[in-house]
Every structure is written in structure tokens, then in C-alpha cells.
Design a protein around this nucleic acid. Structure first.
Lengths: 121, 121
DNA sequence: CGGCTATATTCCTCGATGATTATAAAGGAG
DNA sequence: CTCCTTTATAATCATCGAGGAATATAGCCG
């Protein structure tokens, strides 16, 4: 049998995933994909209140997914862990595969109905 | 500028990530990696109360990550989306990279202290 | 049918989290 | 210094999710 990862490792993984598991934060990461932006720019892209976006940014920073530096009045945020995009791509791939499978299942079910082969309730 | 993914897509991604973002569920997925198991077996591996594990299993099922079928009294669960392991691997890779980077930073800081080059308070 | 086992579900509590509002802090302009 | 802009941080409230205890459901055996 395979050894279980330690609780500590599992919690760290879960923490990163928790930080990712929010639509607003995913949107923020997405707009940062093309390069660093200051908070007001991010605000313009993702909408919502300034305080809310700022908090989401701090969550991402605590999780080590973004970093930031100050330039005068502005604070610029950037992706500090490119791995997030691989993760998102994986999730998207999974979703895509699942949808394809569902569609196939539906198509099969319909063809069975046409030939009268399926469960004939 | 890149187009933003729709809110719907972002929420679906976030939902999958939320289902993943829990140590107990990660452990369950891990023990299922080698093949299907019934609930009592899973219980033996991951610990906790039966009701709790059962609830975590239902979360994973709702998220489409696992599937199950009944055999007599037992219900066997299996991974229904291999993508989860790619995701976990990505997260682990990111964490590893980050730790390596931290260690490097520390090593550099120490060598600077040795040579007296760093911020000399 | 009644008991027994395996699993699911419901109810509850409690701590975590998200959104909003108001306020604080940092830094530039005058 | 005061005023303004940008960002961060409380304070608050509502909601959510995890865990435990009790109960319900499903299927076997007698």
C-alpha cells in the first residue's frame, strides 16, 4: 500500500487550494497573467469594492500565489507562482472532459431510445 | 487584453477546487488512488467518524471527483476524474519550488552575514 | 416479519469566510 | 503642515462548512 502523505503536507496543499477556490480570486489571478497591475487596475478589471479586492489580494499573498511592491501611491501585484495556471488548466481540462463524457452519455441514451434498446419504462 | 472567463466557468472551477480544498478529502482521494474501496475500508484508512467520512464522500461525488456503486451492503467508491492527481501534483510541485526558493534565500542571507555585506544594523 | 450491518442524512454547534461600511495608513501635491 | 489619492485594515453581519450525535435508509440473514 502507498504511504499516506502527512497531515502537514495535506493541510498545506489544502491551504493553497482554498486560496484558489474563489471566483473573484481566480479572476484576479487571470488578469495578472499578462503582467503586474496595481490595485486600482485590478479593481477596474474584476469589479467589486476596493476593500473586498484588497482583502482577496491579501489572501492570495498569504498563500504565496502573488507578490507585490509599492511604487509611490500604487501597489503593484504580480503572480509569484506560475503553477497556479497549470492547476487552473488542469481543472478546466477535467471539466471539459466531464462535459464531453456527459454529452456522449446523452447521445448514447438518445440512440438507445431510437432503437428501443434501453430500459423501456 | 485577454478575455475574462465567464462567471459561470469561474464558479465551476472554484467549486471543484473547493471540493479539493480539504485535508480529509485529499486523504480519501489518495487512498482511492489504488482502486475502489468501500466506505468502511476508507474509514479504516483515513479515520474519523463514519458520518463524517460519508459526508466528505458525498461532497466529492457532487463535485464529480468520485463515483460509487453498491454491492450488497457495501458501497464502493472510485476516482471518476483522474485529473485530480495532476492537480495535486501541481500544487505539490509549487510548494516544493517555493520551499526550495525560501531555502536559497535563507542561504544567501546567511552568506551575506558571513561576509558582512548585508544590512549591517 | 424482526434483528443486524453498512451507509446516508438530519440537526446542531462552532469557527472560518465573504461582503459592506467606515476608518486608518502611506505617500504625493500644494 | 493640510488635502487628496491609493491601498489596507477594522468592525460588523450573514453565510458556509466541518464535525459530532442521533436517526434514517438500504440490504442481508434468520
Amino acid at each position: 500500500m502507498r504511504a499516506l502523505p502527512s497531515d502537514e503536507v495535506l493541510e498545506k496543499i489544502a491551504d493553497v487550494l482554498k486560496a484558489l477556490a474563489d471566483p473573484t480570486r481566480l479572476r484576479i489571478l487571470h488578469v495578472l497573467q499578462d503582467g503586474e497591475l496595481c490595485v486600482s487596475d485590478i479593481l477596474g478589471h474584476v469589479g467589486g469594492s476596493q476593500a473586498n479586492v484588497s482583502k482577496h489580494l491579501s489572501v492570495l499573498k498569504r498563500a504565496g500565489l502573488v507578490g507585490c511592491h509599492r511604487e509611490g501611491l500604487n501597489v503593484f501585484y504580480h503572480i509569484s507562482d506560475d503553477g497556479v495556471f497549470a492547476i487552473c488548466r488542469n481543472v478546466c481540462d477535467s471539466l471539459q472532459i466531464r462535459l464531453d463524457r456527459e454529452r456522449e452519455t446523452l447521445a448514447e441514451a438518445r440512440s438507445r431510445m431510437d432503437t428501443g434498446t434501453g430500459s423501456p419504462d
